[in-house]
Amino acid sequence: MSGPLIELEHVTKLYGTVIGVNDFTARLEPGAYGLVGPNGAGKSTLLNLLTGQLVPNRGRVRVFGANPNQNSELLSKTGFCPGYEGLYSTTSGLDWVTLLLQLHGPPYRAARARAQECMELVGMEHGMNRPISTYSRGMRQRTKLAQAMAHKPTLMILDEPFSGLDPVGRAEMTAVLREFVEEGNSIVIASHVLHEIEALTDNFLLICGGRLLASGTAAEVNQLLFETPSEVELTCDRPEYLGGVLLQQELVRSASVITRDGAEILILQTLNARELGTALPGIIADHSINVVRMTTVDESLQALFNSLMKIHRGEQ
C-alpha cells in the first residue's frame, strides 16, 4: 500500500436524513494532524470512515492509498482509540489488551509481553492486573491508548484521547504520542479543545457541520481567529468616549455601553481583532483612559466555528 496518508474526495456520509460528513475533500501526507471541531461536528463519523467502519454514501476514502472498508492489511497498520469507553468491566486491562493484540496474530506469550510493555508505557504498570471496573476514567483512557498502539501501527486514529485525563496524565500521554510521531509514524487526533492537541501537532483540520471549514498550522488558525469578527469587552472609565474614538477611527463595527454589577462596560464588535489589539494601547494612553479589564467574550473554538460557518454561508 502506498500513496498519501489519507485521501478524501467529496466524501458524504448520511445517517438517514442527518448529514454526518458533507462533501469533505482533503489530502494529507504522513504526519500528525489534529481534527478540531465542536461536539456533533462530524469528527467521529470521519474517523469511522477512515477506519472502514462506515462506508461513504458518496465520494471516496483512501488510507495509504487503499479502501479501508474490511481491509485486514490496512487494519493491521492502523491503531484506533474510539471516543467512547466500551471496555469489558470484569476483565483486567492487561487481559483485554492481550486479547486485542492476539487478533493480529502473535502467539499468546508474545502478545502478553507486548501488552504488558504497552501498559507500562502508558503508566498502567500498577493497575493492569485489576478488573477494568475498578479503573478511573483516566486509567481507562490510558488502557485504550495502550490497545491502540500495542500492535505497532504506523497510523493511530484517536478520538478525544485526553478526555478524562488530569493535567499530569495529559502531559504524559502527549509525550508518548509525540515519541510515536517522532519515530516516523502518523497520527490523526480528534478533539473539540484546540489547545489539547497544540502540544502534539501544528497541523489542524477545522470541521463543523460535517464540512471542512479550514486547515493549516496553529499560527494560521490563530491568524484566522484574529481575522474573524469578534467581540471585546472593556471595563474602563469614560466608556462612551472611548467607544466614540474607536468608531471614529473605524476600528470597530459597533460600540455599546452596559452596566453590569454596578460597573459600566464597553462592548465592542470588530472585524479585525488584531488591528484593534495593536491600536488600543496607544489610544488609551493618548486619551488618558483608565482601563480596569479587557476580555474577548467569544474566543472559544465554537465562536470561531460559528464565524467560519457564517462566512461559509455568505452571511459575513
Partner: peptide
C-alpha cells in the same frame, strides 16, 4: 451495547473471529 464492538471490528478479521 457496551461499545466493545468497535475494538474488535478494527482488528484484522476481528468480526470473523
Amino acid at each position: 451495547e457496551q461499545h466493545s464492538w468497535i475494538y474488535l471490528a478494527t482488528r484484522p478479521n476481528g468480526v470473523f473471529f
